[in-house]
């Protein structure tokens, strides 16, 4: 199905992806999250998982219960009524970040690339609040929107082999936090002492889609103190 608002395409034999034509925005994410709740209610046990992203919604379904064509029909029907924004009490989560030497190995080179001072980069990064569009890639990784265009910087051509958990980074026009130690091509500008993925906890993730993230600059001493308190 094609129209000016969305396209529904297969994503293999057990998933479909709805691609929305709108630009990435908070408004779109609110409608995507709202629609994902509608689909959850409507599909019941035929639904295995539903993955929101910037401009899409991927519906992973049990193809023993429902066939792809029938599902597309049902989704089109649901999409024929206007999508309403989800009513969600957005939380603002403060994430302490140490931008000092030894915590942000790429801060100086990123500042040079952006033709800014290190202080300007830190100020630019901490002034704004960022919207959580979705979780994904790695457990608890937050896809954040709202980075100042002044701070965007192309990804490294050769990714670093291992980036420590909690690293706060910039890649292209995005900023994010590595929840676990992993390889990665973003520029590391600081590190948070918080743990973003706690598989053994009742609340394994620090934020949900539509929450807001605010980075707060902390010293090495504060970093160590917070780290110890966990």
């Amino acid at each position: 199905m094609n129209n000016d608002k969305y396209r529904i395409v297969p994503n293999g034999d057990s998933a479909i992806t709805i691609l929305f034509n709108d630009d990435i925005s908070e408004h779109l994410t609110k409608r995507i999250i709202g629609f994902s709740l509608t689909i959850k209610q409507s599909l019941g046990e035929a639904l295995i998982d539903i993955i929101p992203a910037y401009k899409s919604l991927t519906i992973f379904f049990n193809n023993r219960i429902i066939l792809l064509d029938k599902l597309i029909g049902e989704i089109e029907l649901l999409l024929s009524s206007p999508l309403t924004e989800v009513s969600y009490q957005s939380k603002t989560i403060e994430i302490p970040v140490c931008y000092e030497e030894g915590y942000g190995p790429d801060l100086t080179s990123l500042a040079q690339h952006c033709k800014l001072s290190v202080e300007d980069v830190i100020a630019g990064h901490t002034q704004r609040s960022y919207l959580v569009h979705m979780l994904g890639f790695l457990p608890g990784f937050l896809y954040l929107g709202g980075l100042s265009t002044n701070l965007s910087c192309p990804r490294k051509s050769t990714p670093a082999i291992s980036i420590p958990a909690g690293s706060v980074a910039i890649g292209d026009s995005q900023t994010g936090i590595y929840p676990v130690s992993s390889p990665g091509g973003w520029h590391i500008i600081g590190r948070t002492p918080l743990t973003l993925f706690n598989p053994n906890s009742q609340t394994p993730f620090i934020a949900s889609p539509l929450d807001k993230i605010h980075f707060v600059s902390i010293s090495k001493t504060e970093f160590t103190a917070i780290k110890k308190s966990f």
């Binding site: 994503n11 998933a15 992806t17 993955i51 992203a53 910037y54 899409s56 994904g136």
Partner: peptide, 10 residues
């Protein structure tokens, strides 16, 4: 492309 949900077997 804009990143979206990645299924097993993609």
């Amino acid at each position: 492309i804009t990143s979206s949900g990645l299924m097993q077997g993609s």
